[in-house]
Amino acid sequence: SYYEILDVPRSASADDIKKAYRRKALQWHPDKNPDNKEFAEKKFKEVAEAYEVLSDKHKREIYDR
């Protein structure tokens, strides 16, 4: 789930989600993982997609249904 990707509970606040996104984006940024760039790019995209949905109140409500 998007919550698992960002490592936050379903009850996470918008601020918690933003902090988790920043932490995970740094962790999986391809430039930070030169030895495993392809895998890092995949993870980085997953993190971005999760944040896009969970950071938008309307999209998150739909996702949580």
Rank of each mutant, 00 (worst) to 15 (best):
S1Q: 08
S1G: 13
S1R: 11
S1M: 08
S1K: 09
S1N: 14
Y2V: 03
Y2C: 05
Y2Q: 01
Y3L: 01
Y3D: 00
Y3R: 01
E4C: 14
I5C: 07
L6R: 00
D7P: 01
V8S: 02
V8C: 08
V8W: 00
V8R: 00
P9G: 08
P9Q: 09
P9A: 10
R10P: 13
R10Q: 11
S11V: 06
S11L: 09
S13E: 05
S13L: 05
S13Y: 03
A14T: 13
A14G: 10
A14E: 13
A14I: 14
I17K: 02
I17F: 04
K18M: 14
K18Q: 10
K19A: 15
A20F: 01
R22W: 15
R23L: 14
R23W: 08
R23N: 13
R23S: 13
K24T: 04
K24F: 07
A25G: 05
L26D: 15
L26K: 11
L26F: 10
Q27N: 04
Q27L: 13
Q27H: 09
W28M: 04
H29I: 05
H29L: 09
P30A: 07
P30L: 04
P30T: 06
P30G: 05
D31T: 10
D31W: 05
D31G: 08
D31P: 04
K32C: 14
K32L: 15
N33M: 06
N33Y: 14
N33C: 07
N33P: 04
P34Q: 13
P34R: 11
D35N: 12
D35C: 12
D35M: 11
N36Y: 07
N36C: 15
N36S: 08
N36V: 06
K37W: 09
E38M: 10
E38T: 10
E38Y: 07
E38C: 08
A40C: 08
E41S: 13
E41D: 10
E41F: 11
E41K: 12
K42C: 13
K43H: 07
K43R: 13
K43P: 01
F44E: 03
F44M: 15
F44Q: 06
E46D: 08
E46R: 05
V47Y: 05
V47E: 01
V47T: 04
A48C: 15
A48I: 15
A48L: 15
A48K: 15
E49S: 06
E49R: 08
E49H: 10
A50T: 01
A50W: 01
A50F: 00
Y51D: 01
Y51K: 01
E52H: 10
V53T: 12
V53Y: 05
V53E: 03
V53H: 07
V53K: 03
L54D: 00
L54F: 01
S55K: 09
S55T: 06
S55R: 11
D56P: 01
D56Y: 03
D56K: 04
D56R: 04
D56A: 03
H58G: 12
H58Y: 14
H58L: 13
H58D: 13
K59P: 02
K59N: 06
K59R: 13
K59Y: 05
K59V: 04
R60K: 10
R60G: 03
E61F: 08
E61C: 12
I62D: 10
I62W: 09
I62G: 06
Y63I: 03
Y63L: 04
D64H: 03
D64Y: 02
R65L: 11
R65I: 11
R65P: 04
R65E: 08
